[in-house]
Design a protein around this nucleic acid. Structure first.
Length: 500
RNA sequence: CGGAGCGUAGUAUAGUGGUAGUACGAGUGGUUUGGGACCAUUUAGUCCGAGUUCGAUUCUCGGCGCUCCGACCA
């Protein structure tokens, strides 16, 4: 029997920290809520970067880098943006330390203007963009930046909400509103495609409500995923900024008639939070389950040998040959020749989420075959050595497909159309200390319900159930209905869910 | 910053007002190797401080630490 790592029911976040061997620094630490990512977790991030970067570049986006520090005056320029981020920024006020009498270092030399550690880079980038852009010939400007940002959150959760996180933020500038609208949706589509096709995590796409949109945007679009505990996770956002920042930062251009115009802008981001989504969407009690397209190791080969040295050498030779063949067709292969028992190795690679394990032992060598084991289903099959380079990619493809379908099926099972308040609250999970007022014993999930569009109703529902509007989905058909709370008129259902 | 709970070996856990156990891990020697090996052996622990007591790991108070929950959050 496999040893369970830690029960998901008891403590979800501890469980996935265990499987990925990552850590969040404790609350008592001065850098509480920051995270440490070990090599195996970081390798996943590198693969995410690689694929996203490729997709961005196909649309003409170029990478650049801007300063970590933002002058306070920059953040003040766009009023809504300033208001939205003021509560959660780290501020640099000094630029030197002096040695005190007791050996303690004391901040010295205050800065004339405090610097904000970027919570996002709109302001510092657009100040520069205003100088880069002169005429319509300079547009569109399509810039992306891979960096870290800091948001001083009161309560953190590993990967899902950390004080410092890694992300990419894209910023584009356009001559027309239409072009910017299209860009906003095009980038969201890249996020959807990436998340579904590479991470095998199905997502709902739609608009954020006014109360949930990005501070300073005209509107925000998002992808929302469902985790295995039925809670929702915002996995990526794409914002139409309109001319809000253009007006604050003087991002102007001369059009074909020689007239000065404010530009239209978008920004879009996806962070290390997506690793949390990946872990929580697929993993089981044996550990991580990684979709083949993003797994740092796609196949691990575990040779099994007896006591005879000659036999061992023969097995190693055959294993090396298989590894070479698989590497030649582009797979990432790990060879595990360590002197340990096979069972111990199996468990270790399962915990790390490697999609396919290959076993080669004396019996297999004799039969000129190998054993291939799928991580998602645990199924074992015998494959002729000559067929390995054909069969292993097939298995990887099947795993990728199966993971997505399983997650999609789970989401379907936990999505409910509800038509009354009684029905709505019947799906809200049982109340714990200090939780939702109207909670019953439901399983949660996505609730498709009518909503009148008023922020007061949205807030009241949140207060009573802890469920928020995750998005106003693009693909919901128009349908006359009544707001689930106040009975006001509604033309479309929205997705309510408890969120991370 | 509030509310609750918990502090026993590297980790996970028992137990007791009088000698602190077990498992895993780690070290050594040997036998092993197709699902977390076995035998022998070694290793290491009651968060800190004060009080009650002949005696405190246990009871009381204070501190510190950790976890969970809440406020905050695109």
């Amino acid at each position: 029997m496999a040893k369970k790592i830690t029960s998901r029911e008891e403590n979800y976040s501890q469980w996935y920290l265990d499987v990925i061997e990552a850590a969040q620094l404790a609350d008592s630490s001065p850098v509480r809520g920051c995270m440490i990512i070990r090599p195996h977790g970081y390798a996943i991030w590198e693969n995410i970067q690689k694929e996203l970067d490729r997709m961005f570049k196909e649309t003409g986006v170029k990478n650049a880098y801007f300063p970590l520090f933002i002058p306070k005056s920059f953040l003040e320029k766009e009023a809504k943006h300033a208001e939205g981020f003021a509560k959660e920024v780290a501020i640099v006020t000094h630029h030197r330390l002096k040695l005190g009498e007791n050996g303690k270092l004391i901040p010295d030399a205050p800065l004339e203007e405090p610097l904000i550690v970027r919570p996002t880079s709109e302001t510092i980038m657009y100040d520069t963009f205003s100088r880069w852009i002169q005429s319509y010939r300079d547009l569109p400007l399509l810039i992306n930046q891979w960096c870290n940002v800091v948001r001083w959150e009161l309560r953190t959760r590993p990967f899902l909400r950390t004080m410092e996180f890694l992300w990419q933020e894209g910023h584009t500038v356009h001559a027309t509103k239409k072009e910017a609208d299209e860009e906003t949706l095009a980038m969201l589509e890249i996020y959807r495609k990436f998340t579904e096709e590479y991470l095998a995590v199905p997502v709902a796409v739609g608009y954020k409500t006014e109360s949930e949109k990005f501070a300073g945007a005209d509107y925000t679009t998002c992808i929302e995923a469902m985790m295995q505990d039925t809670k929702a996770l915002q996995a990526g956002t794409s914002h139409m900024l309109g001319q809000n920042f253009a007006k604050s930062f003087e991002v102007k251009f001369l059009d074909e008639k020689g007239e000065s115009q404010y530009a239209w802008q978008t920004s879009w981001g996806l962070s290390t939070r997506i690793i949390g989504a990946l872990i929580m969407a697929h993993s089981d009690d044996k550990g991580l389950v990684l979709p083949p397209k993003i797994a740092p190791i796609q196949t691990v080969i575990v040779p099994i040998w007896g006591e005879k040295e000659e036999e061992r050498n023969n097995i190693f030779e055959a294993a090396d040959k298989i590894a070479e063949e698989l590497k030649k067709i582009g797979l990432s292969v790990e060879m595990d020749k360590r002197d340990a028992r096979p069972g111990a190795k199996f468990f270790e690679w399962e915990k790390k989420g490697v999609p396919v394990r290959i076993e080669i032992g004396p019996k297999d060598l004799e039969a000129n075959s190998i054993i291939a084991v799928r991580r998602d289903t645990g199924e074992k099959e015998t494959v002729a050595m000559a067929d390995a380079e054909k069969r292993i990619p097939e298995l990887l493809e099947a795993i990728q497909k199966n993971l997505f379908e399983k997650a999609l099926e789970f989401r379907k099972e936990n999505t409910h159309a509800v038509n009354s308040w009684e029905e709505f609250v019947s799906h809200i999970p049982e109340a714990k200390r200090g939780e939702a007022e109207d909670a019953k014993t439901g399983r949660g999930g996505f609730l498709l319900a009518h909503w009148c569009g008023k922020a007061e109703c949205e807030a009241e529902i949140k207060k009573r159930t802890k469920a928020t509007i995750r998005c106003v989905p693009f693909d919901q058909p128009g349908e006359e209905g009544k707001c689930v709370l106040c009975g006001g008129a509604s033309k479309k259902r929205v997705i309510f869910a408890k969120a991370y």
